[in-house]
């Protein structure tokens, strides 16, 4: 009726979100834009940063196989970590969901544990567990005859994947957990009454319904692993770099900020593409389950 009131109500969301929006623009969008701009600047050992527009950094990343290897390793680690958390986390969430009250909260706490422990303590704990010839895990595996020589942990991709999977597990478990909560509590009984065996029920009834949860958990784990810094830094150090530690080194050790900015920008762009793309795929594929 009255256009003034309509106008006011149309403006209201903007006014209400303005403070948060300003913070968002101030601490995220502006620095991000500056980083992107920085990646086109020039840098020299003695002249420092020169605010010109050149493609030097991008050309270097595109042509030097060193960077291809770096990004290859980053995404390989992220993919393996995602697979590991999915393979272990989905059954874990399912079992957890079937437990009775007290045990459920106890094990939930254990799963959330890694998030509560400092990354240094957690990663070094894993290093101790493997720890060359004398590490518990290596000794055990060797005494069972499963491996002949100890699995190296420090400065290896295996180490990074194991340590990352540990800390990423809660995201996968909670995401699958949320999907399990949406299940009809009688759905397994329904399948049972129709003559389905337990394995069939899991495969035909449970899995398809929690798949969206697994996939959204996978997106979280993948993007967090690909951009993880602390764990790869402790395990890989200078010897085994990933994109995040490389960018860090360019910024703080070489002081080649423009190159570091280019690496960071590329990592961000790749992640955004992968996440948005797979999210769209998932939503299309599971439209029926989500509706």
């Amino acid at each position: 009726m009255s256009t003034a009131a309509e106008e006011r109500s149309a403006r209201a969301p903007w006014v209400l979100t303005a403070p948060a929006l300003m913070l968002f623009v101030g601490v995220l969008l502006i620095p991000l834009a500056m980083t992107v701009m920085l990646s086109f600047h020039d840098w020299g050992q003695y002249k420092g940063i020169e605010p010109v527009f050149i493609l030097k950094n991008w050309r270097e990343i595109a042509t030097d196989p060193y960077y291809a290897e770096m990004f290859g390793r980053t995404f390989r680690i992220a993919i393996l970590t995602t697979l590991l958390t999915a393979v272990l986390g989905a059954p874990e969430a399912y079992i957890l969901n079937r437990m009775s009250g007290r045990w459920k909260s106890f094990f939930l706490l254990i799963i959330l544990g890694p998030l509560l422990i400092s990354v240094v303590a957690r990663t070094l704990g894993w290093a101790l567990l493997f720890g060359g010839n004398n590490g518990l895990v290596n000794k055990l595996l060797m005494s069972f005859g499963l491996i002949r020589s100890p699995i190296p942990f420090m400065f290896t991709e295996t180490g990074m994947v194991v340590a990352l999977a540990h800390v990423m597990m809660p995201f996968m478990v909670l995401s699958v957990w949320a999907a399990l909560q949406r299940l009809d509590p009688q759905i397994e009984n329904a399948a049972l009454s129709l003559g389905a065996r337990p394995m069939t029920i899991v495969r035909r009834i449970i899995m398809p319904q929690i798949m969206p949860g697994v996939l959204s958990g996978a997106i979280i784990v993948f993007s967090l692993s690909a951009s993880a810094f602390a764990t790869p830094a402790i395990i890989g150090g200078r010897r085994l770099k990933v994109a995040a530690t490389l960018a860090y080194d360019e910024f703080l050790n070489t002081l080649d900020w423009p190159l570091g900015a280019a690496v960071a920008t590329l990592l961000l762009a790749a992640l955004v593409l992968i996440v948005v793309g797979s999210n769209a795929l998932i939503e299309r594929r599971y439209a029926e389950v989500f509706r």
Partner: peptide, 13 residues
């Protein structure tokens, strides 16, 4: 036995 549940418990997928 054939069972119809209060929530129907249909397989949504």
């Amino acid at each position: 036995l054939g069972i119809v549940f209060q929530s129907y418990a249909l397989f949504p997928h």
